[in-house]
Protein backbone atom coordinates (compact mmCIF):
# COMPACT_ATOMS: atom_id res chain seq x y z
CA UNK A 1 0.00 0.00 0.00
CA UNK A 2 2.95 2.27 -0.68
CA UNK A 3 1.29 4.81 -2.97
CA UNK A 4 -1.42 5.42 -0.41
CA UNK A 5 1.16 5.73 2.37
CA UNK A 6 3.07 8.35 0.38
CA UNK A 7 -0.11 10.30 -0.37
CA UNK A 8 -1.26 10.13 3.24
CA UNK A 9 2.08 11.32 4.60
CA UNK A 10 2.41 14.14 2.05
CA UNK A 11 -1.16 15.40 2.09
CA UNK A 12 -2.60 14.54 5.52
CA UNK A 13 0.27 13.36 7.72
CA UNK A 14 3.27 14.81 9.50
CA UNK A 15 4.85 15.98 6.24
CA UNK A 16 1.80 18.09 5.38
CA UNK A 17 2.92 21.61 4.27
CA UNK A 18 6.58 20.73 4.79
CA UNK A 19 7.74 21.60 1.27
CA UNK A 20 5.89 24.95 1.50
CA UNK A 21 7.41 25.77 4.87
CA UNK A 22 10.90 24.76 3.79
CA UNK A 23 10.54 26.87 0.65
CA UNK A 24 9.28 29.88 2.61
CA UNK A 25 12.24 29.73 4.99
CA UNK A 26 14.59 29.40 2.03
CA UNK A 27 13.29 32.25 -0.13
CA UNK A 28 12.73 34.57 2.83
CA UNK A 29 16.34 33.95 3.90
CA UNK A 30 18.11 34.00 0.55
CA UNK A 31 15.83 36.01 -1.72
CA UNK A 32 16.16 36.00 -5.51
CA UNK A 33 19.00 33.94 -7.00
CA UNK A 34 20.23 35.17 -10.36
CA UNK A 35 22.92 33.18 -12.17
CA UNK A 36 26.37 34.30 -11.03
CA UNK A 37 25.07 36.19 -7.99
CA UNK A 38 26.14 35.99 -4.35
CA UNK A 39 22.56 35.11 -3.49
CA UNK A 40 22.70 31.99 -5.67
CA UNK A 41 26.00 31.03 -4.07
CA UNK A 42 24.37 31.40 -0.64
CA UNK A 43 21.35 29.39 -1.80
CA UNK A 44 23.55 26.49 -2.91
CA UNK A 45 25.45 26.49 0.39
CA UNK A 46 22.13 26.56 2.24
CA UNK A 47 20.80 23.59 0.28
CA UNK A 48 24.02 21.64 0.65
CA UNK A 49 23.69 22.05 4.40
CA UNK A 50 19.99 21.21 4.77
CA UNK A 51 20.15 18.18 2.48
CA UNK A 52 22.88 16.76 4.70
CA UNK A 53 20.87 17.57 7.82
CA UNK A 54 17.93 15.74 6.23
CA UNK A 55 20.01 12.56 6.21
CA UNK A 56 20.18 12.16 2.45
CA UNK A 57 23.10 10.28 0.92
CA UNK A 58 25.91 11.41 -1.38
CA UNK A 59 25.11 15.10 -0.98
CA UNK A 60 27.54 16.87 -3.27
CA UNK A 61 28.12 19.95 -5.38
CA UNK A 62 29.18 19.57 -9.00
CA UNK A 63 30.96 22.69 -10.33
CA UNK A 64 29.86 24.40 -13.54
CA UNK A 65 30.62 27.73 -15.25
CA UNK A 66 27.65 30.08 -15.42
CA UNK A 67 26.91 33.54 -16.88
CA UNK A 68 27.17 36.55 -14.59
CA UNK A 69 25.04 39.52 -15.60
CA UNK A 70 23.85 42.22 -13.20
CA UNK A 71 20.99 44.63 -13.53
CA UNK A 72 21.86 48.25 -12.76
CA UNK A 73 19.73 51.31 -12.22
CA UNK A 74 17.17 51.43 -14.99
CA UNK A 75 14.36 53.73 -16.05
CA UNK A 76 12.36 54.78 -19.06
CA UNK A 77 10.70 58.17 -19.25
CA UNK A 78 8.28 59.21 -21.96
CA UNK A 79 8.95 62.84 -22.87
CA UNK A 80 6.43 63.26 -25.68
CA UNK A 81 3.50 63.48 -26.12
CA UNK A 82 3.53 63.77 -22.30
CA UNK A 83 5.72 62.97 -19.37
CA UNK A 84 5.11 59.42 -18.20
CA UNK A 85 7.28 56.99 -16.25
CA UNK A 86 7.37 53.65 -18.07
CA UNK A 87 7.83 50.56 -15.90
CA UNK A 88 10.68 48.46 -17.31
CA UNK A 89 12.80 45.43 -16.49
CA UNK A 90 16.03 45.08 -18.43
CA UNK A 91 16.58 41.70 -20.09
CA UNK A 92 19.33 39.31 -19.11
CA UNK A 93 22.59 39.88 -21.04
CA UNK A 94 21.46 43.32 -22.25
CA UNK A 95 24.16 45.96 -22.62
CA UNK A 96 23.82 49.25 -20.75
CA UNK A 97 22.91 52.61 -22.21
CA UNK A 98 25.36 55.50 -21.91
CA UNK A 99 25.05 57.14 -18.46
CA UNK A 100 22.93 59.97 -19.87
CA UNK A 101 20.62 57.40 -21.46
CA UNK A 102 19.29 57.10 -24.99
CA UNK A 103 16.67 59.59 -26.06
CA UNK A 104 14.91 58.75 -29.30
CA UNK A 105 11.64 58.67 -31.12
CA UNK A 106 9.64 55.44 -30.84
CA UNK A 107 8.59 53.11 -33.67
CA UNK A 108 5.80 50.75 -32.56
CA UNK A 109 5.36 47.41 -34.35
CA UNK A 110 3.22 44.38 -33.63
CA UNK A 111 5.43 41.75 -35.27
CA UNK A 112 8.83 41.08 -36.79
CA UNK A 113 7.17 41.16 -40.21
CA UNK A 114 5.91 44.68 -39.57
CA UNK A 115 9.37 45.70 -38.35
CA UNK A 116 10.94 44.40 -41.54
CA UNK A 117 8.37 46.25 -43.65
CA UNK A 118 9.13 49.47 -41.76
CA UNK A 119 12.88 48.86 -41.64
CA UNK A 120 13.68 52.23 -43.20
CA UNK A 121 11.73 54.02 -40.44
CA UNK A 122 13.54 52.16 -37.64
CA UNK A 123 16.99 53.67 -38.02
CA UNK A 124 17.90 55.71 -34.92
CA UNK A 125 14.62 54.87 -33.18
CA UNK A 126 13.62 52.93 -30.11
CA UNK A 127 11.59 49.98 -31.39
CA UNK A 128 8.58 49.11 -29.22
CA UNK A 129 7.17 45.64 -29.82
CA UNK A 130 3.47 45.35 -29.04
CA UNK A 131 3.12 41.75 -30.17
CA UNK A 132 -0.09 39.96 -29.08
CA UNK A 133 0.27 37.16 -26.56
CA UNK A 134 -0.47 33.88 -28.35
CA UNK A 135 1.18 31.45 -25.96
CA UNK A 136 4.50 31.48 -24.12
CA UNK A 137 6.43 29.30 -26.58
CA UNK A 138 5.23 31.30 -29.57
CA UNK A 139 5.48 34.80 -28.13
CA UNK A 140 8.71 34.49 -26.15
CA UNK A 141 10.70 34.79 -29.40
CA UNK A 142 10.07 38.56 -29.24
CA UNK A 143 11.89 38.72 -25.91
CA UNK A 144 14.69 36.41 -27.07
CA UNK A 145 15.31 38.00 -30.47
CA UNK A 146 13.71 41.46 -30.26
CA UNK A 147 16.99 43.31 -29.78
CA UNK A 148 18.69 41.45 -32.62
CA UNK A 149 15.89 42.12 -35.10
CA UNK A 150 15.73 45.78 -34.09
CA UNK A 151 19.53 46.05 -34.20
CA UNK A 152 19.57 44.69 -37.75
CA UNK A 153 17.47 47.63 -38.97
CA UNK A 154 19.47 50.28 -37.13
CA UNK A 155 17.35 50.83 -34.05
CA UNK A 156 19.11 52.23 -30.96
CA UNK A 157 17.15 50.23 -28.35
CA UNK A 158 14.20 47.87 -28.07
CA UNK A 159 11.33 47.82 -25.58
CA UNK A 160 9.30 44.64 -25.65
CA UNK A 161 5.80 44.02 -24.40
CA UNK A 162 6.01 41.53 -21.53
CA UNK A 163 5.23 37.89 -22.31
CA UNK A 164 2.02 37.45 -20.37
CA UNK A 165 -1.72 37.19 -20.88
CA UNK A 166 -2.52 39.42 -17.90
CA UNK A 167 -0.91 42.46 -16.37
CA UNK A 168 -1.24 44.99 -13.58
CA UNK A 169 1.40 47.25 -15.12
CA UNK A 170 3.97 44.59 -14.24
CA UNK A 171 7.02 44.17 -16.50
CA UNK A 172 8.42 40.62 -16.88
CA UNK A 173 12.13 40.05 -17.37
CA UNK A 174 13.89 37.13 -19.08
CA UNK A 175 17.04 36.20 -20.97
CA UNK A 176 17.71 37.50 -24.47
CA UNK A 177 20.27 36.55 -27.10
CA UNK A 178 22.50 38.83 -29.15
CA UNK A 179 24.02 37.69 -32.44
CA UNK A 180 27.70 38.26 -32.99
CA UNK A 181 27.22 39.93 -36.38
CA UNK A 182 24.46 42.32 -35.28
CA UNK A 183 25.06 45.57 -33.32
CA UNK A 184 24.12 45.12 -29.66
CA UNK A 185 21.45 47.51 -28.44
CA UNK A 186 19.99 47.88 -24.91
CA UNK A 187 16.76 45.95 -24.46
CA UNK A 188 14.09 45.73 -21.78
CA UNK A 189 10.55 44.59 -21.28
CA UNK A 190 7.73 47.02 -20.63
CA UNK A 191 4.24 46.35 -19.32
CA UNK A 192 1.34 45.32 -21.54
CA UNK A 193 -0.38 48.55 -20.54
CA UNK A 194 2.43 50.83 -21.72
CA UNK A 195 2.99 48.83 -24.92
CA UNK A 196 -0.69 49.11 -25.80
CA UNK A 197 -0.80 52.81 -24.93
CA UNK A 198 2.16 53.61 -27.17
CA UNK A 199 0.56 51.53 -29.94
CA UNK A 200 -2.64 53.57 -29.62
CA UNK A 201 -0.70 56.83 -29.65
CA UNK A 202 1.28 55.73 -32.67
CA UNK A 203 -1.82 54.66 -34.60
CA UNK A 204 -3.18 58.19 -34.12
CA UNK A 205 -0.01 59.60 -35.67
CA UNK A 206 1.28 60.94 -32.34
CA UNK A 207 5.04 61.36 -32.08
CA UNK A 208 6.46 59.51 -29.06
CA UNK A 209 9.87 60.25 -27.53
CA UNK A 210 11.41 58.18 -24.75
CA UNK A 211 14.61 58.40 -22.70
CA UNK A 212 15.89 54.95 -21.73
CA UNK A 213 18.56 54.49 -19.05
CA UNK A 214 19.99 51.09 -18.18
CA UNK A 215 23.07 50.35 -16.08
CA UNK A 216 23.47 46.61 -16.77
CA UNK A 217 26.89 44.94 -16.54
CA UNK A 218 28.19 41.61 -17.84
CA UNK A 219 31.06 39.96 -15.97
CA UNK A 220 33.16 36.93 -16.89
CA UNK A 221 31.52 33.55 -16.33
CA UNK A 222 31.72 32.41 -12.73
CA UNK A 223 31.77 29.08 -10.91
CA UNK A 224 28.47 27.73 -9.62
CA UNK A 225 27.23 24.27 -8.72
CA UNK A 226 24.52 21.72 -9.44
CA UNK A 227 23.42 20.39 -6.05
CA UNK A 228 22.96 16.62 -5.85
CA UNK A 229 21.60 14.25 -3.17
CA UNK A 230 20.51 10.63 -3.33
CA UNK A 231 18.75 7.71 -1.79
CA UNK A 232 20.98 4.91 -3.04
CA UNK A 233 19.18 1.99 -4.62
CA UNK A 234 19.05 -1.36 -2.80
CA UNK A 235 19.33 -3.68 -5.80
CA UNK A 236 20.48 -1.65 -8.81
CA UNK A 237 22.33 1.27 -7.21
CA UNK A 238 24.06 2.25 -10.45
CA UNK A 239 20.69 2.86 -12.13
CA UNK A 240 19.17 6.31 -11.62
CA UNK A 241 15.76 7.92 -11.45
CA UNK A 242 16.44 11.65 -11.57
CA UNK A 243 14.06 14.18 -10.01
CA UNK A 244 14.83 17.85 -10.32
CA UNK A 245 14.02 21.53 -10.28
CA UNK A 246 16.25 24.57 -10.67
CA UNK A 247 17.67 26.58 -7.81
CA UNK A 248 18.51 29.79 -9.65
CA UNK A 249 15.82 32.36 -10.35
CA UNK A 250 15.43 35.86 -11.71
CA UNK A 251 16.64 38.82 -9.68
CA UNK A 252 13.13 40.09 -9.01
CA UNK A 253 10.56 38.71 -6.60
CA UNK A 254 11.69 35.65 -4.66
CA UNK A 255 11.77 32.92 -7.30
CA UNK A 256 9.28 31.03 -5.13
CA UNK A 257 7.20 29.87 -8.08
CA UNK A 258 9.97 29.68 -10.71
CA UNK A 259 11.37 27.37 -9.65
CA UNK A 260 11.47 27.24 -5.87
CA UNK A 261 8.34 25.09 -5.82
CA UNK A 262 9.76 22.58 -8.31
CA UNK A 263 13.07 22.34 -6.48
CA UNK A 264 11.42 21.86 -3.10
CA UNK A 265 8.86 19.22 -4.12
CA UNK A 266 11.79 17.33 -5.64
CA UNK A 267 13.62 17.46 -2.31
CA UNK A 268 10.34 16.53 -0.63
CA UNK A 269 10.11 13.37 -2.75
CA UNK A 270 13.34 12.06 -1.24
CA UNK A 271 12.34 13.19 2.26
CA UNK A 272 8.99 11.40 2.07
CA UNK A 273 10.56 8.17 0.89
CA UNK A 274 13.16 8.34 3.63
CA UNK A 275 10.54 9.15 6.28
CA UNK A 276 8.56 6.07 5.26
CA UNK A 277 11.66 3.93 5.64
CA UNK A 278 11.58 3.01 1.96
CA UNK A 279 14.59 2.31 -0.24
CA UNK A 280 13.79 1.70 -3.91
CA UNK A 281 15.72 -0.84 -5.95
CA UNK A 282 17.47 1.85 -7.97
CA UNK A 283 18.95 5.14 -6.91
CA UNK A 284 16.68 8.14 -6.58
CA UNK A 285 18.80 11.18 -7.38
CA UNK A 286 17.80 14.76 -6.62
CA UNK A 287 19.45 17.38 -8.81
CA UNK A 288 18.91 21.09 -8.15
CA UNK A 289 20.12 22.72 -11.34
CA UNK A 290 22.02 25.96 -11.41
CA UNK A 291 21.68 28.63 -14.11
CA UNK A 292 18.55 27.34 -15.80
CA UNK A 293 17.33 30.84 -16.57
CA UNK A 294 20.21 31.74 -18.93
CA UNK A 295 19.29 28.61 -20.92
CA UNK A 296 19.84 25.40 -18.98
CA UNK A 297 23.54 26.12 -18.45
CA UNK A 298 24.08 23.90 -15.40
CA UNK A 299 22.02 21.09 -16.89
CA UNK A 300 23.97 21.11 -20.14
CA UNK A 301 27.25 20.69 -18.25
CA UNK A 302 25.71 17.94 -16.08
CA UNK A 303 24.72 16.12 -19.25
CA UNK A 304 28.23 16.44 -20.70
CA UNK A 305 29.71 15.11 -17.45
CA UNK A 306 27.35 12.15 -17.01
CA UNK A 307 26.23 11.17 -20.51
CA UNK A 308 28.81 8.37 -20.50
CA UNK A 309 26.47 6.55 -18.11
CA UNK A 310 23.33 7.28 -20.09
CA UNK A 311 22.34 3.60 -20.21
CA UNK A 312 21.85 3.76 -16.43
CA UNK A 313 19.37 6.63 -16.55
CA UNK A 314 15.85 5.22 -16.18
CA UNK A 315 13.87 8.47 -16.39
CA UNK A 316 14.63 12.19 -15.99
CA UNK A 317 11.97 14.28 -14.27
CA UNK A 318 11.84 18.04 -13.83
CA UNK A 319 9.19 20.27 -12.31
CA UNK A 320 9.55 23.78 -13.76
CA UNK A 321 6.03 24.89 -14.63
CA UNK A 322 4.68 25.76 -11.23
CA UNK A 323 3.46 23.71 -8.30
CA UNK A 324 -0.20 24.64 -8.39
CA UNK A 325 -3.09 22.14 -8.49
CA UNK A 326 -1.57 19.05 -10.14
CA UNK A 327 -3.36 17.29 -12.99
CA UNK A 328 -0.76 14.65 -13.76
CA UNK A 329 2.44 14.38 -15.75
CA UNK A 330 3.67 15.16 -19.21
CA UNK A 331 5.75 12.35 -20.62
CA UNK A 332 8.06 11.73 -23.55
CA UNK A 333 9.09 8.15 -24.25
CA UNK A 334 8.30 5.04 -26.22
CA UNK A 335 4.74 3.71 -26.52
CA UNK A 336 5.66 0.85 -24.21
CA UNK A 337 7.03 3.22 -21.59
CA UNK A 338 3.94 5.41 -21.93
CA UNK A 339 1.71 2.38 -21.34
CA UNK A 340 3.60 1.69 -18.10
CA UNK A 341 3.36 5.34 -17.02
CA UNK A 342 -0.37 5.23 -17.71
CA UNK A 343 -0.65 2.37 -15.23
CA UNK A 344 1.49 4.15 -12.64
CA UNK A 345 -0.66 7.27 -12.92
CA UNK A 346 -3.66 5.21 -11.78
CA UNK A 347 -2.01 5.08 -8.37
CA UNK A 348 -2.81 8.79 -8.11
CA UNK A 349 -6.59 8.34 -8.32
CA UNK A 350 -7.02 9.28 -4.63
CA UNK A 351 -5.80 12.80 -5.45
CA UNK A 352 -7.30 12.96 -8.95
CA UNK A 353 -4.02 13.56 -10.76
CA UNK A 354 -3.96 10.64 -13.17
CA UNK A 355 -3.59 12.40 -16.53
CA UNK A 356 -0.66 11.71 -18.80
CA UNK A 357 0.14 14.34 -21.42
CA UNK A 358 2.68 14.68 -24.25
CA UNK A 359 6.02 16.51 -24.19
CA UNK A 360 7.69 15.60 -20.91
CA UNK A 361 11.02 17.31 -21.55
CA UNK A 362 11.86 20.55 -19.71
CA UNK A 363 14.78 22.92 -20.29
CA UNK A 364 17.08 21.00 -17.94
CA UNK A 365 16.13 17.45 -18.94
CA UNK A 366 15.78 17.91 -22.68
CA UNK A 367 19.39 16.87 -23.37
CA UNK A 368 18.59 13.38 -22.06
CA UNK A 369 15.18 13.17 -23.65
CA UNK A 370 16.69 13.97 -27.07
CA UNK A 371 18.93 10.94 -26.55
CA UNK A 372 15.92 8.70 -25.94
CA UNK A 373 15.77 8.70 -22.15
CA UNK A 374 12.16 8.82 -20.93
CA UNK A 375 11.34 12.28 -19.59
CA UNK A 376 8.53 13.54 -17.37
CA UNK A 377 7.45 16.91 -16.05
CA UNK A 378 4.74 17.94 -13.63
CA UNK A 379 1.54 19.26 -15.18
CA UNK A 380 -0.48 21.57 -13.00
CA UNK A 381 -2.97 24.40 -13.32
CA UNK A 382 -0.84 27.06 -14.99
CA UNK A 383 -3.74 29.41 -15.70
CA UNK A 384 -2.08 32.07 -13.51
CA UNK A 385 1.55 30.97 -13.89
CA UNK A 386 2.56 33.53 -16.51
CA UNK A 387 0.91 36.35 -14.59
CA UNK A 388 3.77 36.14 -12.09
CA UNK A 389 6.54 34.60 -14.22
CA UNK A 390 9.84 36.60 -14.03
CA UNK A 391 8.22 39.47 -12.13
CA UNK A 392 8.39 41.10 -8.72
CA UNK A 393 5.22 39.12 -8.01
CA UNK A 394 6.95 35.72 -7.99
CA UNK A 395 6.86 35.39 -4.21
CA UNK A 396 5.63 32.91 -1.58
CA UNK A 397 2.28 34.66 -1.72
CA UNK A 398 1.42 32.87 -4.99
CA UNK A 399 2.25 29.46 -3.51
CA UNK A 400 -0.37 27.30 -1.80
CA UNK A 401 0.74 24.73 0.77
CA UNK A 402 -2.05 22.25 0.07
CA UNK A 403 -1.36 22.34 -3.67
CA UNK A 404 2.34 21.82 -3.00
CA UNK A 405 1.44 18.78 -0.87
CA UNK A 406 -0.45 17.29 -3.81
CA UNK A 407 2.38 18.05 -6.23
CA UNK A 408 4.85 16.41 -3.86
CA UNK A 409 2.61 13.34 -3.67
CA UNK A 410 2.46 13.02 -7.47
CA UNK A 411 6.20 13.52 -7.80
CA UNK A 412 7.02 11.02 -5.06
CA UNK A 413 4.65 8.21 -6.06
CA UNK A 414 5.79 8.27 -9.69
CA UNK A 415 9.52 8.56 -9.00
CA UNK A 416 9.43 5.90 -6.27
CA UNK A 417 7.48 3.34 -8.26
CA UNK A 418 9.68 3.76 -11.34
CA UNK A 419 12.78 3.48 -9.16
CA UNK A 420 11.45 0.35 -7.43
CA UNK A 421 10.07 -1.62 -10.37
CA UNK A 422 11.99 -4.71 -11.37
CA UNK A 423 12.68 -3.47 -14.90
CA UNK A 424 13.79 -0.09 -16.20
CA UNK A 425 11.36 1.72 -18.48
CA UNK A 426 11.66 0.54 -22.11
CA UNK A 427 13.48 3.02 -24.33
Amino acid sequence: NIAKAIINLAVYGNAQNRSYERLARFVDTVGPRLSGSKNLEMAIKYMFSVLQEDGLENVQLEPVKVPHWERGEESAMMLAPRNHSIAILGLGSSIATPPEGITAEVLVVTSFDELHKKAQDAKGKIVVYNQPFVNYEETVKYRLQGAVEAGKVGAVASLIRSITSFSINSPHTGWQQYQSNVPKIPTACISVEDAEMMARMSSRGTRIVVTLKMGARTYPDTVSFNTVAEIVGSKYPEQVVLVSGHLDSWDVGQGAMDDGGGAFISWEALSLIKDLGLRPKRTLRLVLWTAEEPGGVGAEQYYQLHKGKISNFDIVMESDSGTFMPMGLAFTGSDKARAILTEIMQLLQPINATNLYENGGETDTVYWVRDGIPGASLRDDISKYFWFHHTQGDTMTVQDPSQMNLCAAVWTVVSYVIADMEEMLPR
Binding site: N1, A339, Q346, L347, D420, M421, E423
Partner: peptide, 24 residues
Protein backbone atom coordinates in the same frame (compact mmCIF):
# COMPACT_ATOMS: atom_id res chain seq x y z
CA UNK B 1 2.57 -22.84 -30.48
CA UNK B 2 5.33 -20.33 -29.61
CA UNK B 3 4.29 -16.91 -28.36
CA UNK B 4 4.55 -14.14 -30.95
CA UNK B 5 6.46 -10.96 -30.12
CA UNK B 6 3.15 -9.21 -29.48
CA UNK B 7 2.01 -12.04 -27.20
CA UNK B 8 5.29 -11.83 -25.30
CA UNK B 9 4.91 -8.09 -24.88
CA UNK B 10 1.29 -8.46 -23.79
CA UNK B 11 2.29 -11.13 -21.29
CA UNK B 12 5.12 -8.97 -19.93
CA UNK B 13 2.89 -5.91 -19.78
CA UNK B 14 0.24 -7.81 -17.80
CA UNK B 15 2.96 -8.71 -15.31
CA UNK B 16 4.09 -5.08 -15.11
CA UNK B 17 0.49 -4.00 -14.53
CA UNK B 18 0.24 -6.47 -11.66
CA UNK B 19 3.53 -5.20 -10.27
CA UNK B 20 2.34 -1.59 -10.39
CA UNK B 21 -1.02 -2.54 -8.88
CA UNK B 22 0.96 -3.91 -5.97
CA UNK B 23 1.87 -0.34 -4.99
CA UNK B 24 -1.76 0.75 -4.74
Amino acid sequence: KPLSQDDCYQHAFEEIKREIAGYS
